[in-house]
Design a protein around this nucleic acid. Structure first.
Length: 597
RNA sequence: GCACCCGUAGCUCAACUGGAUAGAGCGACUGGCUUCGGACCAGUAGGUUAAAGGUUCAAAUCCUUUCGGGUGCACCA
């Protein structure tokens, strides 16, 4: 990842500073060098400077020791424009910017552009489909699905900010042996009951039959055969089974809708159902055969020979012409053609890494998109401290999405009541929902996707420290200052008043936001943004602790109001990109009475 | 058996893809509200980056080997 160099998307101040640095170095050198050799970066610590150029590459090119070169450059570059001071520190050439001018550029730009700050055109004119969620429809959702949804959602938001036209899609895996098992379970033990009659959330109700089937099948192995038979009859079009199937699927999807609503996830632009497409996959296979992408072996199996690409061959159609999971992904590629996609992204767990390598190769051979335009956003699974979250035997307590949401909601309510005992019930509920969701989403999104997360239902998600609620809290505090001060921020201030290092640390972080957005999109990794937002919030807290805003001298106050206003702007944009709500207040509204200090 | 991923503080995770003294949060211990919101802030302890070699001016990062964990591997979805 390159948070700096390759990001064309930069704050004005940063653009200007880097251009000046490159220019100055080139001018000071006796020989002409390529700009590529001047790799500007951020120093590891604030006191070292604002920008740094490690001189190794240049030194090699110029055949000079890096330390000497850095010293030479430090002496021979005259600070000008945004650059106020240059220091050689070993082989590093460190640049300090003019704090006042830099601050002015950054704060004004954010104030003027608001949510357009951070926006860029890297995706302009490009159509991209992000397929995520894609659940099996035989059991309730788990925390794993939540990770998928959080990643998909924030990636969509980020790409939209970068100008992409994004089509959100999902694929319901509503066919297959697991569904057949659920049908058998319901037929055997369901007694024609409805979820309502059973007093269960519909997806949990349906899932209970799948679990019961799996438990019972261990004792009665012949149940497995029964399920196979049901699957065959279903595929042949048995009316009787279709009716049951339809009923169960409707329930499950209703249940999913509730969970998605709890997670504040909106509609998908395109919802695909495997049951509707799996048979059409054969057409896709036919086309592939004609193109020579697939071959039929002696037993009548149709496969894609992929060994010459370093991948195992992939079977795409059984000898009896029945299709496989991959068959329908091929068909979907034809269906998706109508969107004239430039890029297609699949958010799916890392256990499918090989599958997607094969799929993308096949799709490329079939003449769809070129390889780099397919991307598998692969994420690690979520495990319990002592193992994996198994879903066949039913969910382990606390790992189901609904349980988890309810549990977090309770925790949040308790926290709120502890702090504000006389808040009205409706307000407690509302805030508990917003805060617990922030905690969950940030907890998941702050970890880079590839990491296998270890999750302990009892203690993993907290509300203090490096958490979603902390970020909400910082934003709420800033709001609070404006509510109390009753003054609007303005850019007609004396920027020289913002001369504290705590303030400049914030300004520098603010200036990096556009690059952070670019990096998050480029790497398909929202955790870059999540971690940045925490750093920004933390920098604000440090400032807040030491320097008063409302009680400061008039001019200082005006300047600081603009600073914190811009912090709030970026926090709000960033949190929204992560799918996290910003709260105006986290405590009882002033004037509501009865608030005890 | 083969392939891919992973191993960083007691725990959960970072580390700008090879750069400066490996950083946060939690937990532990200590301190801070007559001052804009204590879901906060400050401080202390905690590391041979699984181990051993190698490449490099520079390695948690790249290569090799070993150990440990995970995930896949053609007619499941």
């Amino acid at each position: 990842m390159d948070l700096f160099g390759s990001a064309k998307n930069k704050a004005e101040a940063e653009k200007k500073a880097t251009a000046e640095i490159i220019e100055a170095i080139k001018k000071a050198l006796p020989k002409k060098v390529s700009s590529k050799l001047i790799a500007i970066d951020y120093p590891p610590q604030n006191n070292l400077g604002d920008y740094t150029v490690p001189c190794f590459l240049l030194a090699k090119k110029l055949k000079q020791p890096p330390v000497e070169l850095a010293e030479f450059l430090a002496k021979n570059i005259e600070p000008a424009g945004l650059i106020s001071r240059i220091e050689a520190k070993g082989p590093y050439l460190n640049f300090f910017t003019n704090q006042k001018v830099f601050t002015e550029l950054v704060l004004k730009e954010i104030f003027k552009k608001k949510s357009r700050f951070g926006k860029n055109i890297s995706g302009k004119g490009k159509r991209v489909m992000v397929e995520y969620f894609s659940p099996n429809t035989n059991k309730p959702l788990t925390i794993g699905h939540v990770r998928n949804i959080c990643l998909g959602q924030s990636l969509v938001n980020l790409m939209k900010l970068c100008g992409y036209k994004v089509i959100q899609s999902t694929l319901y895996n509503d066919r297959g042996i697991a569904i057949a098992k659920t049908i058998v379970g319901y037929q055997k033990w369901g007694n024609g009951q409805t979820p309502k009659e059973a007093g269960l959330k519909p997806d949990h109700f349906v899932g209970s039959f799948y679990v019961k089937f799996c438990q019972q099948a261990k004792i009665e192995p012949e149940l497995e055969k029964e399920a196979k038979k049901v699957l065959q009859e279903w595929e042949k079009g048995s009316k009787e089974i279709k009716v049951v199937w339809q009923k169960l699927m409707t329930w499950v999807l209703d249940g999913f809708k509730e969970t998605l609503a709890d997670l504040k996830i909106g509609k998908f632009d395109e919802e695909y159902y495997e049951s509707e497409h799996y048979q059409s996959g054969k057409e896709a296979v036919e086309k592939g055969l004609k193109k020579g992408v697939f071959v039929k072996d002696s037993e009548g199996v149709i496969l894609a020979p992929l060994q010459k690409y370093g991948l195992p061959d992939k079977i795409v159609l059984r000898p009896d012409d029945t299709s496989l999971y991959v068959t329908q992904d091929l068909y979907l590629a034809y269906l998706k053609e109508k969107y004239q996609l430039d890029q297609s992204i699949y958010v799916v767990g890392s256990e499918q890494d090989l599958y997607f390598k094969q799929l993308f190769k096949i799709l490329e051979l079939l003449g769809f998109l070129k390889a780099p335009n397919y991307h598998h956003l692969s994420y690690g699974m979520i495990r319990l401290p002592d193992g994996k979250i198994k879903s066949r035997e039913g969910l382990i307590k606390g790992t189901g999405a609904d349980d988890l949401l309810a549990e977090l909601n309770n925790l949040a309510e308790t926290e709120i009541k502890k702090r504000f005992p006389d808040l009205v019930e409706a307000e407690i509920e509302k805030r508990a929902g917003q805060i617990s969701l922030a905690a969950l989403k940030f907890y998941i999104l702050a970890v880079s996707p590839a990491t296998t997360m270890v999750f302990d239902p009892a203690q993993s998600i907290a509300f203090a420290g490096r958490t979603g609620p902390y970020l909400q809290y910082v934003a709420a505090r800033i709001n609070s200052i404006f509510a109390k001060g009753k003054e609007k921020p303005s850019i007609k201030i004396d920027f020289a008043k913002l001369d504290n290092e705590l303030e400049f640390a914030i300004v520098k972080l603010l200036s990096r936001f556009p690059g952070i957005v670019s990096a998050a999109v480029k790497n398909f990794d929202p955790s870059i943004l999540a971690n940045y937002l925490f750093d920004l919030a933390k920098a604000f807290s440090l400032f807040y602790e030491k320097l008063p805003v409302l009680n400061a001298d008039k001019e200082v106050k005006a300047a600081r109001l603009l600073l914190i206003y811009d912090v709030k702007t970026i926090l709000a944009i960033g949190l929204e990109l992560l799918g996290i709500e910003v709260l105006e207040k986290m405590r009882r509204p002033a004037g509501a009475g009865g608030f005890k200090l």
